[in-house]
Amino acid sequence: MTSVRPKLKPETPKAVTGWSTATGRSLWLAVDGSWTEDASRLGVFAGDEAEARLAASLKQEGIVTDPYFMEVTADGRITGRESLRETMRAQPVLAYGGAA
């Protein structure tokens, strides 16, 4: 992983995100513990719960690759220093002809 990962304070709201090991698609951890390709369904965590969620994610090598914390607001909107990159990851991207 080469993108910059800012250190977040324990109390900072955060999501857990990574990539599907099988397909490489961006994934976000939902509140119910499932992985979703829909960023609007991401779970917001903080403190010890966030650390526990990330630790558990790191053990799912065959499912998710390189999970990490991503800064979000309390209501789940992308924020922080990496917001441009994370917003791009959460959006549909260019297809041939420039259409999303």
């Binding site: 990539w19 090991t21 099988a22 397909t23 490489g24 698609r25 961006s26 799912q60 090598e61 065959g62 499912i63 690759t65 390189d66 990159r85 791009m88 990851r89 991207v93």
Partner: peptide
């Protein structure tokens, strides 16, 4: 790798030797 018996750290140099990157979306 798909079975989870190779970690990403172990697999990354192998995939790169075969032209496989993990990019922003895929």
């Amino acid at each position: 790798r798909l079975a989870g018996t190779l970690t990403e750290d172990e697999f990354k140099p192998l995939r790169l030797q075969n032209g496989v990157y993990l990019q922003l979306h895929a």
